[in-house]
């Protein structure tokens, strides 16, 4: 750790004296001068004049103290070094199955591709259930697609017939929105599912869609009342659960990979104490 005492953090030899900045009244005097100069604006002009004089004196005094060289004073160093005792208390370690000491948990995660695959599979399941809803309730496959597109592309109130009709722009918007969101949620599943110790499909596929649907149900009337009127919440929940279950099943069937046990900076070789420099090795000078 150090070149000096083994239980001290000191890296350099202890000197007899240390140079510190010499005390100076000039900064305080300059501050007083500026204050008095300002006080003249609410009082006598004499105050401003005195303040200006103090500013000049303080400024010159300060300059002379730091130019051409900063003035220092030597302070004697206490001969008795500060030592830090080695603790006799041992660290008790939690027993985790097959986990090395100080592991980054979880030990294994799903690869990014698992999240993408899960998201795409879930998007198909959700699309099927949504289209089923459109056909059953409104006799149109376009109804749910247009509703989704209307999230970002709707200005005025429209009739049911209009929503049930084909609109290329809404189809494009809905497709991009659906695929993007599905992949992102799939990635989220891939990251979160390894952290759910038990019944990941139940939590990720049923519980999470329930919470999400409940949240939207409670706020959509405030955010977009027109859209809220068109939502069949039971079918909405069914399509969310379809996504969650399918995406979850696809993700958990992928092969897990080990988690990197060192941070990115260490892996990249930017900063790797303990790996690049062994115990007792001197730290490189800055």
């Amino acid at each position: 750790m150090s070149s000096g005492h083994p239980s001290s953090p000191a890296a350099s030899p202890i000197p007899a004296h240390v140079s510190l900045p010499a005390p100076s009244v000039w900064p305080g005097l300059l501050a007083l001068g500026l204050t008095l100069a300002a006080a003249g604006l609410v009082g006598s002009r004499v105050l401003s004049i005195v303040g200006a004089v103090l500013c000049v004196v303080g400024g010159i005094g300060w300059f002379l103290q730091v130019l051409p060289h900063d003035r220092h004073e030597d302070v004697s160093v206490d001969a008795k070094p500060v030592t830090i005792a080695v603790s006799h208390r041992k660290v008790s370690r939690m027993a985790a199955a097959q986990a090395p000491h100080r592991a980054r948990l979880p030990l294994e995660i799903y690869p990014i591709s698992a999240g993408i695959k899960g998201g795409l599979a879930g998007s198909v399941a959700m699309a099927v259930s949504a289209i089923l809803y459109g056909v059953i309730s409104h006799g149109s496959v376009w109804y749910p697609i247009n509703l989704l597109g209307a999230v970002v592309y709707a200005q005025t109130e429209v009739s049911t017939a209009q929503i049930s009709a084909f609109h290329i722009e809404l189809l494009l918007v809905a497709t991009v929105l659906h695929l993007t969101t599905s992949i992102l949620v799939g990635l989220l599943y891939g990251a979160i599912l390894p952290m759910l110790p038990r019944r990941p499909i139940l939590v990720g596929g049923v519980f999470a869609p329930l919470v999400w649907t409940g949240l939207l149900y409670s706020v959509l009337d405030l955010i977009d009342p027109l859209l809220n009127q068109r939502i069949d919440w039971l079918w909405f929940l069914v399509s969310q659960v379809a996504f969650g279950v399918v995406a979850g099943l696809v993700v958990v069937r992928q092969v897990r990979v080990p988690t990197w046990q060192f941070p990115l900076a260490a892996r990249a070789g930017i900063e790797s104490p303990g790996m690049m420099h062994e115990v007792g090795e001197q730290n490189p000078p800055r």
């Binding site: 750790m1 890296a11 350099s12 000197p15 510190l20 500060v82 420099h277």
Partner: peptide, 13 residues
């Protein structure tokens, strides 16, 4: 003390 540390410390974590 005024000088904080007798010797300049070094850290590794």
């Amino acid at each position: 003390p005024d000088y904080n540390f007798a010797g300049v410390p070094a850290v590794r974590s």
